[in-house]
Design a protein around this nucleic acid. Structure first.
Lengths: 241, 241
DNA sequence: CGATTTGTTGATCTTACTCAATAATCGTGG
DNA sequence: CCACGATTATTGAGTAAGATCAACAAATCG
């Protein structure tokens, strides 16, 4: 395996499933990756309706993905954090059904999909790697679904925060103290809640000593309590049996 | 391309992306597919915690996928209809994070994943096919997410019915008149609503002449109205700008 | 520095959940 | 085939949670 430094400068080598490719394969892969300048807040990686050509790896910063319906209503579908890959939903249709915008100054790697597909024909390991990468995205979406199906605002909010925490931890960033890269509006939209509700729930959690929030800065004080809050939907489903 | 008859008897040949494999490739593929007897209501394709080994194609009938948390609460993640493939979420972790149960007598094809992976190394077309298949599942999950993020019960319910309608149509089944293979309990659980709310919303829709429901039998009378009901969340998001 | 976006808090009202009762359907065994 | 219990489905009444409306504070940006 390559050392951390060389791993850190490429997009694919840390693509979610480490230790499944050899050094040679990683180097070959890295050559196909187009590095990009840092992108500023509001810049678009791709827009709804664009022809699909590349996957994108978030090196630093954060990206929000949303789709817009006929009436112009936006619906946030996902947030992508450092180390995560986006764009895989468009491989089939070859068309982006959503828009990806940078939330804060971010370093983004563009990975031309054609090259990856070709390379994967030559490197069996990469092929397996990609199947797993796609599968992992399916699993991620399922977890977000579990989150959205929760009934109360508190459950959704706590599940959302736990989800962010876990994802930051997985990338060796702090899982207990981090910066929310998105606005309350985005959070509310994503969770299917009103902005005011998001604000209120966060305040309530802070008053109970579970978290500490100051604008976008968030610290998880009582992880245990937050965890319990997230799935313990009380006794409704359990008691009906 | 093979004719409809031979296509209809195998699991993979009609796997979502037709016309991307040659006849030879389809035949080679079919040989790896284990056919299964019809399975009865309540039978499990796999259970949460099982080691992953195969994908499953629904030939007829329907399957529900759900996960159970520590407290024993079930959360329905998806319903799979004829022509759809399930199990792809476990390729990465090699472990099923959910349980798949047959909702009504169904014909299911088991597709050993190892064989598919091996074959895809030999058949480049199949490789591309699989990438697209996985991508399509990601897209499907996104659409379900859009559905769950809707705020009102009516929006979720109508979006859900429209989703079923579209999926049945894609498989050349009637999109305007079909049988709901799942209980109201499952629908409610999936949509994050109370059972009573599901019942009430369906009754209300019927009274307005949008649909006709009699137990599990459902007919969409006014598709246009149902469509509008599904995303037109009124003026909240639009007017705030 | 002023303007705009974003965030918080309060009051009111609507929606959907809960509890409860009843009806219909399904499945099973006599 | 029908009777039985169990599950599933519908409808009503009361309540609680969250949306909406509104006012204001804080942060961001040009």
């Amino acid at each position: 395996m390559l050392n951390d430094v060389s791993c850190a400068q490429c997009g694919l080598s840390d693509l979610c499933i480490p230790h499944s490719l050899t050094d040679e394969e990683i180097i070959e892969l890295d050559e196909t990756i187009m590095r990009k300048k840092p992108m500023g807040r509001g810049a678009a990686l791709y827009r709804q309706g664009d022809r699909f050509s590349s996957l994108y790896a978030v090196r630093s910063g954060a990206v929000k993905v949303y789709s817009t319906d006929q009436e112009g209503n936006e619906q946030v579908l996902a947030f992508y954090l450092p180390g995560e890959i986006l764009g895989m939903d468009a491989i089939d249709s070859k068309m982006h059904a959503s828009t990806a915008k940078v939330l804060e100054t971010s370093a983004i790697c563009e990975i031309p999909y054609g090259s990856v597909e070709n390379l994967s024909r030559l490197i069996p390991n990469l092929q397996v790697h990609l199947y797993r990468l796609l599968s992992r995205e399916i699993r991620m979406d399922q977890i977000l679904q579990l989150l959205l199906a929760k009934n109360t605002a508190e459950e959704r909010m706590s599940a959302f925060l736990m989800n962010l925490s876990v994802r930051y931890s997985q990338r060796r960033l702090s899982g207990t103290s981090f910066n929310l890269p998105m606005t309350r509006i985005d959070v509310a939209n994503f969770l299917g809640l009103a902005v005011e509700t998001v604000s209120r729930v966060l305040s309530r959690m802070q008053n109970r000593g579970i978290i500490k929030v100051k604008g976008r800065d968030l610290t998880i004080v009582d992880k245990q309590a937050l965890c319990e809050m997230a799935h313990l939907r009380g006794s409704d489903k359990a008691s009906t049996h």
